[in-house]
Computed example of a mutant assay.
Amino acid sequence: MSFISSVCIAVALVAAVGFFAYQTVMTPAGKGTAEVLFDIEPGDTLPRISAALEEQQLIRSARLFQYYVKFKGLGGQLKVGEYALTQSMTPDQIISVLISGRSVARKITFAEGLNVFDLVQIFEKNEIGTREEFFKLVYDKEFIRSLLGEELPSLEGYLYPETYQITKFESTRALLTQMVRRFLQVWQLEIEPVAKNSGWTRNQIVTFASIVEKETGAAFERPLVSSVFHNRIHKKMRLQTDPTVLYGMAMKQGKMPNNITRNDLLTPTPYNSYTNAGLPPTPIANPGKDALLATLRPAKTNYIFFVSKNDGTHVFSETLQQHNQAVRDFQLNPKARENRSWRDLNQQPHQLNNKINK
C-alpha cells in the first residue's frame, strides 16, 4: 500500500470518527417528546450528571457529553434543580436547560389560619425541610429582622397564606422568605393604607386578625367576629377565645393539642385570653387579607357574644341572656347538634375550633 493510500485511509478514519463524535454530541438521543424529569442534586459532579443523562437515554454518550461541556467551559455552571427534558432535545438544548436553573415548579397551598405548628407538618410532608430547621428559622431573631425590619419573637402571623410555586429542592429559608415577602406586598398595598389612622402597631393588627381568622367559620362573618372582639376590648372585657388557650398549650408542648378542657381555660399562660386581659403577646396563626381588613373594618354592632350553629356560622348576641338562650338552642340541644357536632355532649372537654360560650 502506498504512502498516499495510507494517508487517505487515515484521513477517512479520522473523518469517520469525527462524524460519529459530531453525531453523538450534536444530535438528539431519540425522537421521543415525552417529558423526562431529571434531577441535579446538591454535590452532583459532571461525570455523575453525564452518566445519569445517558442512563435515562437523554444523550448518546456520557463521556463525549462530558468532554463537550468542558470544551464549552460550562462544567461549573450546571445548577441544582429538577428539569423537564426530552429525548428529542439536542445536547446543546439540554445544557441550556441545566445551566438556566429553571426547575420544574410545583404548587403548594397554605390555607388561612394555619399556625407554625400546622405549617411545619406541610413543610415536612413536602420534603422542603426538617422540623428542626423550620423552627430554628421561625424563631431566629436575625432572620426575622432581615425580613421584617423589627424585633419580633417569631414569624408567626407573617407567613402569608396563599398558593406558592416551589421547586423540588426549595429550601426552608427560601420558602419562608417568599411567604414573608408576600405578606409585605399585601400589607403595603392593601392593609397599610387602611391601618394608618388605627392607632395600632402592625403586630397588634396581625395578632388581632389571627384571632379573627381562627374564630371564623364562614368567610362573610369575619367583620362580625371582629366586631365582637372590638366591643369586648372597648368594654374592657377579656377576649375569652379558645384558640388563644390552645396556642399557649402548643407553645408549651411543641405541637397543637387535640382537645381543650375547662381546666385548661383556667390555667394561665401568656396566651390565655381567659386569664389575661388584652391581646396575646404574638399572633396565634397566619391571617389572610380579609381577616386583616376585617380587623380594621369591623361591622358596626353591639355584639359581645357568639355561639356556633354547628354549620360553620354563628349566632351573635348583645346580652348574656340572649347568648345563654343561643347556647341552649344550639349547643345544649342534642337535636341541634345531631350529625353536626364532633363533640360528644356527655364529655367535658372542649375540642379544637369549638365556638361555645364566647
Results as ranks from 00 to 15, higher is better:
Gln178Ser: 12
Ser100His: 06
Ala84Cys: 09
Ile99Gly: 07
Ser103Trp: 03
Ile122Cys: 01
Val138Cys: 13
Arg106Tyr: 11
Glu133His: 09
Gly75Cys: 11
Leu137Ser: 09
Gln121Val: 10
Gly101Val: 07
Gln178His: 10
Gln87Ser: 06
Leu152Phe: 03
Ser96Lys: 12
Glu133Pro: 02
Ile94Gln: 00
Leu137Thr: 08
Gly113Cys: 07
Val116Pro: 02
Leu184Met: 13
Ser103Ala: 13
Glu124Val: 15
Asp92His: 11
Ala105Glu: 15
Thr177Tyr: 06
Gly101Asn: 03
Leu148Met: 13
Leu137Val: 13
Phe123His: 04
Leu119Glu: 08
Ser88Leu: 01
Ser154Cys: 12
Lys79Gln: 15
Ile128Lys: 02
Pro153Leu: 10
Lys168Pro: 06
Thr167Gly: 12
Ser96Leu: 09
Thr167Arg: 14
Gln77Glu: 15
Asn115Cys: 08
Glu82Ile: 09
Leu175Pro: 01
Val104Ala: 11
Ala174Glu: 10
Gly75Pro: 03
Leu119Tyr: 05
Ser96His: 11
Leu119Arg: 04
Ala105Ile: 12
Arg106Cys: 05
Arg182Gln: 09
Gly75Thr: 11
Glu162Ala: 10
Gly81Gln: 06
Arg106Leu: 11
Leu78Gly: 03
Tyr160Pro: 01
Glu133Tyr: 07
Ala84Glu: 05
Ala84Pro: 02
Val138Ile: 15
Val138Tyr: 03
Gly73Leu: 10
Ile95Met: 14
Glu132Ser: 14
Ile122Ala: 01
Glu150Gln: 14
Tyr83Phe: 12
Leu78Ala: 05
Thr177Arg: 09
Arg106Ile: 04
Val80Met: 08
Phe183Ile: 03
Leu159Glu: 04
Ile144Arg: 02
Phe117Ala: 05
Gly76Glu: 13
Ile94Ala: 00
Thr90Ile: 04
Arg173Cys: 13
Asp118Ile: 05
Ile99Asp: 05
Ile166Val: 14
Thr167Trp: 06
Ala174Lys: 05
Gln93Phe: 00
Leu176Tyr: 02
Ile95Ala: 11
